[in-house]
Design a protein around this nucleic acid. Structure first.
Lengths: 229, 229
DNA sequence: CTTTTTGTTTGTTTAGCTGCAAAGTTCCCG
DNA sequence: CGGGAACTTTGCAGCTAAACAAACAAAAAG
């Protein structure tokens, strides 16, 4: 059983009493999902909402022409699969574990009641939605106005924030990440990503190997994103 | 004074009684904004939330490099400027009137109370957010995977749904719309849009003139969006 | 240890767009 | 009604990044 103390400090649960939170947690079921398996798929009936305890989740959609797009990553303690919050009865995307992951799952039937009784929870859910909306808008702007180099750099920096881990060589992106994954995030091809990474490696911005990227010069990488004119 | 009957049927207000709705409306102030003027700007303190009564609004953001992106259009009876719903204290974008427009404005201080007392209103706000999130995601996918021709066609079709008006020549997009506007929606340049429209005009898909586009063959235009491989 | 699978790099070619310039149109305003 | 502003079209030059192919490297499977 999960230790309530580990999550009681989260803003999601700010106005749950200790016992309320315990009851709430007890209503959930831990769901463990292996790397590359899904918590749920696009179009599926939204029977549960989730909070990620450990791991990383790729939110993926498939375009009309069959190409895969990574919409975002979910990190620990984020709510996800909250279709109800926006009045939907099916999940709008696929949630694929990037590494072995564990989440708590609540029956969707509890949503309305939970939101009504716990304003902090409702607020957290709404600001989660708001942040996602802003993020996605930022990506639209990026895709519409910036060149590939900029976009790939931005994708790496975002990953760095979400999953960066200090090492002696620099900051490692602690998710197994293929060139293809990066290109799926930045709307380009794995070839271009490979070329960019090679180039950056030569100029000492990053180190990369199979499924791993370490950023050695965050400053310079950031500056690629702010290039004016 | 606005006739309450005109809007009482909207889902937003499903569980307002007649008198509650009257009171609610009375708390608002009609705001009239001329073409090309703004209801509010990005970063401004979010003092009001709005419902559009008449007109069209362009939701615009400016990229880091100064380029303008049209994030979406707001049409009649939509809520907008609902920053509070996502826990923000400033507006996240500019709301510019595409034509002379009128909206009701409520003081943001009323938000929490309104949402709490009227679940239908809260639900409407949330599904508005949800739809926007989905829309923006769709645009990300489009920008990341589809070619310009496809994207411009999709932009026109979206406008057609929002502001289409039957005429004897076809369906007119009833908003003054420059080539630049269309390119700002589809992440390309006004030159390319101009070329595409010329081409489509030759093959009888559209008719266009200064600031006007009429779609004469919606079927074929739609098929440009579904082009496989 | 060998084979297969999966991921990465790199060369070459080329389509698709952008960017600029310049001319043509349409509209608006005094 | 005339002049200027705003919008549109078109030609051309140039370049970015996509697409394909092929070889290489690393990991997983047997």
């Amino acid at each position: 059983m999960l230790d309530v103390a580990l999550i009681s400090h989260l803003p999601n649960f700010a106005d749950f009493s200790r016992s309320e939170l315990e009851i709430f947690i007890r209503q959930s079921k831990a769901k463990r999902v292996e790397k590359n398996a899904s918590f749920f798929s696009e179009g599926e009936a939204a029977n549960s909402f989730y909070m990620l305890l450990d791991g990383y989740i790729r939110v993926v959609r498939i375009s009309a022409s069959g190409e895969q797009i990574i919409v975002r990553y979910i990190t620990s303690h984020e709510l996800f699969g909250i279709a109800s919050a926006i009045g939907r009865e099916t999940y709008p995307a696929n949630a694929v574990a990037a590494i072995d992951s564990v989440a708590l799952a609540w029956p969707m039937a509890l949503w309305d009641d939970t939101v009504r009784r716990f304003p902090s929870f409702a607020k957290a859910a709404n600001s989660t939605l708001g942040n996602r909306l802003m993020d996605v808008q930022d990506r639209v702007i990026e895709l519409a106005t910036e060149q590939v180099e900029h976009r790939v750099a931005a994708a790496l920096l975002k990953l760095l924030e979400q999953a960066g881990k200090e090492t002696d060589e620099g900051i490692l992106i602690d998710i197994p990440l293929t060139r293809q994954d990066v290109s799926d995030m930045s709307g380009t091809t794995l070839y271009t990503v490979s070329r960019l990474l090679s180039g950056w490696e030569q100029s000492g911005l990053v180190k990369s190997s199979r499924k791993r990227v370490t950023v050695t010069d965050k400053i310079k990488l950031t500056s690629l994103c702010n290039r004016q004119e």
